[in-house]
């Protein structure tokens, strides 16, 4: 029971890191980016290829799994996304679906359609016991790492000059420009950070979710659910939502496997009916 709870929390934290970039682009730039999962996939493949082909150790690949998608994200933001900020949500949906399809086929073409496997280092395998409760080492590692990331993210947004500028740029673009803030640069950096976090969580998630070219679609559904029920008024909403969805998904698969993916969709719809403004409603 507790073991499952801990598994669920680990999974939920991972989902949050994965979704945080999307929550930021959606909440701050009002951009519906269905292709967020594609960046997660890139991160996953970076780690898988670096380990399997170059023989790099797992931990060392993680910075790469952040940097490569972040870089691609920055370029894509400047060249493609930035043109669509003012367009309708329908346009944004179409554009990002197109990207998903292209990313999926490209991955299939370059790397094949089979599952990518990675072998975790020995010290992350198996489980240890605290007070008779078995805890997977990798799950514990995930919880600690994601917690650090969550705190860091919150600090960056709330305490740094960058965060302040970002909030200013979102509140009133024109005023921010007047103050000499490089709005375009801020948005690009934010987008890159979100893509990087998605990539990192994609790499961390190989062990839990597997990795193949359909990854972007699978991830898309999960992160969108998290953001939809969490709301985008703050990061607290998506954080809670990610924990709820993560735990429910793990527990559901364990206790009532017949329900399968039923559970999270049902949960989403029920939560939307109960809290249509998001878990944490925006202040009015």
């Amino acid at each position: 029971m507790t073991t499952i709870l801990i598994d669920g929390i680990a999974y939920g934290m991972l989902l949050f890191v994965m979704a945080s970039g999307l929550a930021v682009t959606l909440g701050l730039m009002n951009f519906v980016n269905l292709a967020h999962g594609a960046f997660a996939m890139i991160g996953g493949y970076v780690t898988a290829l670096a380990m399997n082909r170059l023989g790099m150790p797992f931990l060392l690949t993680l910075p790469l799994a952040f940097l490569v998608p972040a870089l691609i994200g920055a370029v894509a933001e400047r060249m493609l996304y930035a043109r669509l900020y003012r367009r309708s949500h329908l346009d944004q949906v179409l554009f990002s679906i197109a990207l998903v399809f292209m990313a999926m086929t490209a991955a299939d073409w370059l790397l094949g359609s089979s599952q990518m496997l990675v072998t975790l280092p020995g010290w992350l395998q198996g489980r240890f016991e605290i007070a008779g409760i078995g805890i997977g080492r990798y799950r514990a590692f995930l919880i600690v790492l994601c917690a650090v990331l969550v705190v860091a993210l919150q600090l960056v947004l709330a305490r740094t000059r960058f965060g302040a500028r970002l909030r200013a740029a979102v509140d009133d673009q024109r005023a921010a420009r007047g103050l000499g803030i490089d709005v375009g640069g801020i948005f690009a950096a934010t987008f890159a950070m979100g893509s990087g976090l998605a990539g990192l969580s994609g790499a961390l998630g190989i062990e839990l979710m597997g990795l193949d070219p359909t990854f972007p679609l699978k991830i898309m559904v999960y992160v969108l659910i998290v953001v939809t029920i969490g709301g985008t008024a703050s990061l607290t909403g998506p954080f809670l939502a990610a924990l709820i969805i993560g735990t429910a998904d793990v527990a559901g698969k364990y206790y009532i496997p017949e329900l399968g993916a039923f559970l999270i969709y049902l949960l989403m719809i029920v939560l939307l009916i109960l809290r249509p403004q998001g878990l944490i409603a925006p202040a009015r």
Partner: peptide, 21 residues
């Protein structure tokens, strides 16, 4: 419930996925 495009996307998607399951 909430006239936001994202919610509508997710509700429609959710219903379709439920039906598929």
């Amino acid at each position: 419930l909430r006239a936001s495009d994202l919610t509508r996307l997710m509700v429609t998607l959710g219903v379709a996925m439920l039906l598929l399951e």
